[in-house]
């Protein structure tokens, strides 16, 4: 007889282990705190030009200075601000738009729903990154066009997710019961259908945040993102290109920050997926699932 090991029983292993998640949460919290407190923490004005150009890290400039003599640490702190704020909007605006469109189409059904499916199919076939760059190129660089581009290309996924969920929830008896009790269709949709249909979109939002962060950094790297001179991680890496061999700190610190932030968000998105997805995955998420995921529907 073969030995039955308990490990063989748990078919699904957690995708990110406990300490990774704690570390990710800690790093992200630290980044947010640093971004919020940037004006207090920064040793210098991030835009202040000095004659101490291209200084290596020292006591006076912890992360050195750049080609224009600006303090890299201060710029990094303010860049965190720019990137996190842009990330929230670049992921949040498409979700808002997609949720509204998907919810109405899914609830009303008929022509509206068919139209949405048609549009969504077309969008699905388009290369998003190429379009993103093309969009910003046409609209001109700047935060506004960045957000417009993200919203125009990003809403479709949310609309699709929400539409499917809304159509599922709409068939539940409490929805028609609420209508019979006297609520308007709008009230039924926003008070009873949508709250029960949001779960998957929230999980996707978490993943999308990481994508948005990278997207913003990449576009800024190509000079298509924020206005020139604005402290931004991608732009900082871009400016440091010329000095890559001689002055490593210029590219290394903002680059490292992007990597750390991106992977932290990805790891946390994973965790959120486990908690909200309702699937008992692994030990940790199983425990958390009882607290949060369990609030969801009891399937009859």
């Amino acid at each position: 007889m073969a030995m039955i090991t308990p490990a063989a029983v748990s078919a699904v292993t957690p995708r990110a282990s406990g300490w990774t998640r704690s570390a990710a949460a800690g790093l992200l919290a630290l980044a947010i705190l640093a971004a919020v407190l940037a004006p207090l923490l920064a040793p210098a004005d991030p835009a202040l030009l000095t004659l101490d150009q291209l200084q290596p890290p020292s006591a006076a400039h912890l992360l050195g200075t750049d080609a224009l003599g600006r303090d890299v640490l201060s710029r990094l702190l303010f860049a965190l601000r720019t990137d996190l704020l842009l990330m929230v909007f670049a992921a949040g605006l498409p979700m808002l738009a997609g949720t509204l469109i998907g919810a109405v189409a899914g609830y009303r059904g008929g022509v509206l729903d068919a139209a949405l499916r048609w549009v969504a199919d077309i969008f699905q076939a388009l290369p998003v990154y190429v379009l993103l760059i093309a969009f910003v190129f046409v609209l001109g660089p700047g935060t506004a066009s960045l957000l417009v581009a993200f919203s125009v290309l990003g809403w479709v996924v949310y609309a699709r997710l929400i539409r499917t969920e809304v159509r599922r929830v709409r068939e539940r008896d409490y929805v028609s019961a609420s209508y019979l009790l006297g609520l308007s269709h709008t009230a039924v949709l926003f008070r009873h259908v949508l709250p029960n249909a949001l779960r998957q979109s929230l999980v996707y939002l978490a993943t999308d945040m990481g994508m948005a962060l990278q997207g913003i950094a990449v576009l800024s790297f190509f000079g298509l993102g924020v206005k020139a001179g604005t402290p931004e991680l991608g732009a900082m890496v871009s400016e440091a290109q010329l000095f890559l061999r001689s002055h490593w700190w210029l590219a290394a610190f903002p680059g490292l920050t992007i990597v750390i932030l991106g992977s932290s968000i990805a790891a946390l998105g994973d965790r959120l997926g486990d908690r909200l997805g309702g699937r008992p995955v692994g030990r940790l998420s199983g425990r958390l699932g009882g607290r949060l995921g369990g609030r969801g529907e009891a399937r009859g």
Partner: peptide, 22 residues
Amino acid sequence: PPGMRRRIQMIYQDPGSSLDPR
């Protein structure tokens, strides 16, 4: 209209689906 919907109410078969889980 809501006032007329109010006068006839319905009880459903599936107790798992007739109440908003949230």
